[in-house]
Design a binder for these strands. Structure first.
Length: 348
DNA sequence: AAAGCGTGGAG
DNA sequence: TCTCCAAGCTT
């Protein structure tokens, strides 16, 4: 197997990057290395688009400008700040990692990839990215962009250990001694702007001449599309309103762990006995991994205000005053629902 | 080691 | 509207 990367193509790539590359807020300059910001950006950017990350990165760095600031925050607030980005374990891992850094490294973020790699939430990619961007190490950070580029350069339909080894050593060999991270950034942005998953702009590509997929006209079909079926679900939600407070449930495991949600009607013990429907809110779609769930929220109020307290029969729940919902981390679909609740209450 | 983990933007 | 998939990691 071959990858036709040489000094000339690497040079062409870097020149392309300097002309067409985009500078993001997390790009540390050589004189003001912001290690923390680079790390945060890498975590946010995993499986998440640059467009979605940019505004959230700014607010996160404002609230948690240093590892210490994050280490001092409680989980609820950390998740609230992460809300909307998804994959909430990333935020939890980051919080655990900064706590470890405080105790094991005296608050100093380690420079060596092997040490970074031991922190929770830091895998091969992020370790290499931080080491190269923040500390100038010659380590290839290979992400989805890099894999796609490698597959197209070599016209291989599968990404395997062999291709990884060949590509990694080729990249690391060509990384300049001065600012080697620029090579990683160049590859990623090439994948983002030119060597895109669909309709790659080969006419603008500095590597077009050494690309086998392009040579064979197979750039559109490498890598092959993956397709998986979407499972449809429909869930009725119970928004229980009692004495100015709303019932919420905290998810303790699985999807949305640590986030607060409105319980499903089916989860409430004796719903008809204690509660009466008082209005409907508009449906919301909660799409996650391979599910597409339609949420149908209904407001309920106590059918007998003077009776004994109703049985909820559901653990990890609590009634919160309306203003408090603002502070609870929720999945975004539930956040949209919570935004409608005050309007409905005006009619009660 | 295959599957779980969220969401929004782009086409 | 619908499909694809993104600067991955963990178990």
């Amino acid at each position: 197997m071959t990858i036709n990367l040489n000094e000339d193509s690497a040079e062409a790539l870097l020149i392309w990057f300097r002309v067409h590359g985009v500078s993001y807020p997390w790009a540390g300059s050589s004189d003001s290395l912001d290690v923390w910001g680079i790390w945060v950006s890498e975590v946010m950017l995993q499986q998440t688009t640059v467009a979605a990350v940019e505004p959230r990165y700014r607010s996160w760095m404002k609230r948690f400008p240093s590892p210490e600031a994050l280490a001092a925050a409680d989980e609820e607030e950390v998740l609230r700040e992460w809300e909307g980005l998804g994959y909430y374990n990333r935020a939890r891992n980051l919080a655990v990692a900064v706590a470890e850094i405080r105790t094991a490294y005296g608050g100093r973020i380690p420079e060596e990839p092997a040490e970074l790699r031991r922190l929770p939430g830091v895998g091969e990619y992020i370790a290499a990215a931080v080491a190269s961007f923040a500390f100038g190490k010659r380590r290839a950070a290979i992400d989805a962009n890099g894999r796609r580029i490698a597959q197209r350069l070599s016209a291989r339909e599968i990404w395997d250990k062999e291709l990884e080894t060949v590509f990694r050593s080729a990249v690391e060999e060509l990384m300049p001694l001065e600012n080697p991270g620029e090579m990683n950034a160049a590859l990623m942005q090439l994948g983002q702007l030119v060597c895109t998953p669909r309709s790659p702009r080969c006419g603008d590509c500095p590597l077009a001449l050494c690309c086998l997929a392009r040579l064979e006209g197979r750039q559109e079909s490498i890598p092959p599309r993956r397709r998986q079926e979407v499972i449809q679900k429909k869930t009725r939600l119970a928004i229980l309103y009692d004495g100015g407070r709303i019932l919420m449930r905290k998810r303790m495991k699985g999807i949305g762990k640590g986030l607060w949600v409105f319980p499903a009607e089916s989860e409430i013990e004796g719903l008809e006995k204690w509660w009466e429907p008082a209005g409907e809110l508009s449906e919301q779609i909660h799409a996650y991994t391979r599910y597409r769930e339609v949420l149908q929220p209904r407001i309920f109020r106590r059918n007998d205000e003077r009776g004994t307290a109703p049985v909820i029969g559901l653990p990890d729940t609590n009634f919160f005053p309306l203003e408090k919902l603002q502070e609870l981390p929720m999945p975004t679909a539930y956040r949209r629902i919570s935004g409608q609740v005050p309007d409905i209450l005006n009619y009660l």
